[in-house]
Amino acid sequence: MKIRVYVSLKEGVLDPQGKAIGHALNSLGFQGLGEVRVNRVVDLDVPADDSSAAIAKGEAMARALLANEVIEDYSVEVVA
């Protein structure tokens, strides 16, 4: 079953990469930008019988590796 894990920096945590992108866009003429945040999407094909088992697996993988829970949030959804 295909699942998608979204990983994003927690609200309020500084995102130097987003900041650099915002800055570069600004210098390319895209003015008036607010905050830019860079997030991560991980697509996985997991062996699971149903959606809830697939999501549980995705969450376990997020906690173990894909997200740093101290500074990042994650969410998991079934894609197909």
Binding site: G12, K19, I71
Partner: peptide
């Protein structure tokens, strides 16, 4: 108790 962790930006 974890507060929002400070993230450093060495280029700044």
């Amino acid at each position: 108790k974890r507060p929002t962790v400070q993230v450093g930006d060495p280029f700044i």
